[in-house]
Design a binder for these strands. Structure first.
Lengths: 329, 329
DNA sequence: TTGTATGCGTTATCAT
DNA sequence: ATGATAACGCATACAA
């Protein structure tokens, strides 16, 4: 790979002159400019980012540390992050923690070694004090994405509001009892419950919470619920994967969807529209999140003195499909 | 970020001595060693990869250029690639071409600028001569993955053999007619057809090929097929996404699966086991491919003189599930 | 407009 | 065992 010094030798000028030409910076003699450019092109010159970075400029590297790239949701996010980074001439150096704190810690060191200009992170535990201390010590512009970490710029979806949307929707579609699949510490659950309690003070008695995964056990729980609640049941699953499993179980049980039970998933995975019936789901604004996160990050990179911390809760959107729409007969 | 020179100043030794200590290389005075180590640890020293690389060692960067990270299959692959890279102390710098040749070309330049030690690529068009010339000019150890590029190390799945597996399976499960969803240039199709022609010389007349995507149009085509072929029908879809759509359509048509039609997908996506009925699918050995690709690449990086080109066709495996199993009543 | 000199943080080759 | 010194490829301040 040819270097500036080499081009200088070949064209009979000094290396800084080559630098000027190649960076289009200063006023250079047009003839020299042409000669140098021609030589560079002929030899396929590519600047050595390592040297550039050493000499004081930026690395144009953005470290992306996330928990699970094989998760379609994160993979989608990465796609948009990469797209945005590219627009500004940055490249992504990617790390997958696999939800392991040790890996996360190690990667925090690796990105330091590469002197990344900025960091976009999906933390394993966004509010663990150890992690926060570590991050703050790095002194690298950082944006947390899909999670809210206090004291750090965060771009995420307001899950509580999303849960409320689902609750409102199922209620409007005539559901008289409810099943929530997932963990009750989930903000989705909080929003779901709150809005429905507003509608119906006896709501709690009409709610079944299922956290187990085993299909047979789930079927038993559902059976029990349907026996106790004759009216239409609204089911909210914390993600589409889970919703898919439930759809299969309902199918097997002979429960009519959406007639007897309305189902809503989360993440709006591509498969939703292909399922039978098509699955209602909550769509997270992946591209918007990526764009905003990168925007915040680049701003911090360019203006390091701006120490202002921003929170960007974004709104998810329920995409109603057949699985939860009450069709009057 | 503290440097070796700074540590040298603080501990009253020379910078090269610090280097020796930190690299555990030479015999150094134990007292000095301890002093330096303590100082490094206290200040959270991290080597500057840019400087290391400039000074002659490797960048420990592996460029990963692929077509679509948001595709679950590639995302999964990346997960394993990252895992393997990490084991050997390499990091991934990731690029998503989005199937655009211009982006691919541009990224080929970017990885040069970063002086990556090696390249793992899913090309947009693996046998375009322009691309191949470009790749060869780079003179960077490269492994092509999921595709077979002649003249370049390639790790991929033998789709023809995979198609044959599906054909054999459906035949064994008592199918008397067949539907293939996809493109006939697909190697999967070739293998599928070949094996079935061996079994039944009149096979071609019993085969319907559907390439369209529109659900209504697909339904009409299927309807026609079922009217003409009363026996059990074996359906092979080129990927799970498509299989899912078909499952929905069959459901809607009232076609019993697997009784009236056996269905097999491709990629063995996580959703297969949650579908109703669970979907038979061909599993690509993602982890094995990633491991092999990285192994080949690291070998080439460490032994650049070994110019030997290797092809690694790997075997996919049909995972039979309820959707294609003939249950005798 | 152009060349000289210097420094970035390492590694590596010398002496000592 | 350790310290000078040079070199990697580039940017930049300064001199001419």
């Amino acid at each position: 790979m040819i270097t500036m010094t080499e081009i200088a030798r070949l064209t009979g000028v000094s290396q800084p002159t080559v630098s000027r030409v190649l960076n289009g910076n200063q006023a250079v003699n047009p003839e020299v400019r042409e000669r140098v450019m021609a030589c560079a092109k002929a030899h396929g010159y590519q600047p050595n980012v390592m040297a550039q970075s050493l000499a004081g400029s930026r690395t144009h590297l953005i470290g992306v540390i996330l928990t699970d790239i094989s998760n379609a949701f994160f993979a989608d996010l990465v796609k948009y992050l990469e797209q945005e980074a590219r627009k500004s001439g940055f490249s992504l150096i990617l790390f997958n923690t696999n939800y392991e704190l040790l890996h996360e810690q190690e990667y925090l060191e690796v990105v330091q070694r590469y002197r990344v200009d900025g960091l976009i992170v999906v933390p394993v535990q966004e509010n663990a004090s150890k992690w926060k201390t570590h991050i703050h010590h790095l002194n690298i512009p950082t944006v947390v994405i899909t999670r809210r970490a206090e004291g750090l710029d965060s771009v995420y979806v307001d899950h509580q509001e999303a849960g409320a949307q689902v609750g409102r929707h199922l209620h409007e579609e005539g559901c008289e009892s409810y099943v929530f699949f997932g963990n009750t510490v989930d903000q989705k659950y909080q929003g779901f419950v709150e809005i429905l309690e507003e509608q119906d003070s006896a709501f709690r008695e009409k709610l079944t919470i299922i956290a187990i995964r085993d299909s047979n056990a789930v079927e038993r729980e559902l059976q029990k619920h349907f026996e106790q609640h004759p009216g239409r049941t609204g089911i909210f699953a914390y993600n589409d994967r889970r919703a898919l499993q439930i759809l299969g179980i309902l199918n097997k049980m002979g429960i009519e969807v959406p007639g007897r039970a309305g189902l809503v998933g989360f993440d709006n995975t591509y498969m939703c529209e292909y399922l039978y019936p098509p699955l209602s789901s909550v769509s997270q604004p992946n591209e918007a999140m990526a764009v905003k996160a990168m925007e915040l990050l680049l701003h911090k990179i360019q203006q390091p003195e701006d120490i202002h911390v921003e929170n960007w809760p974004m709104r998810a959107e329920l995409i109603p499909r057949e699985s939860s729409l009450f069709r009057k007969k």
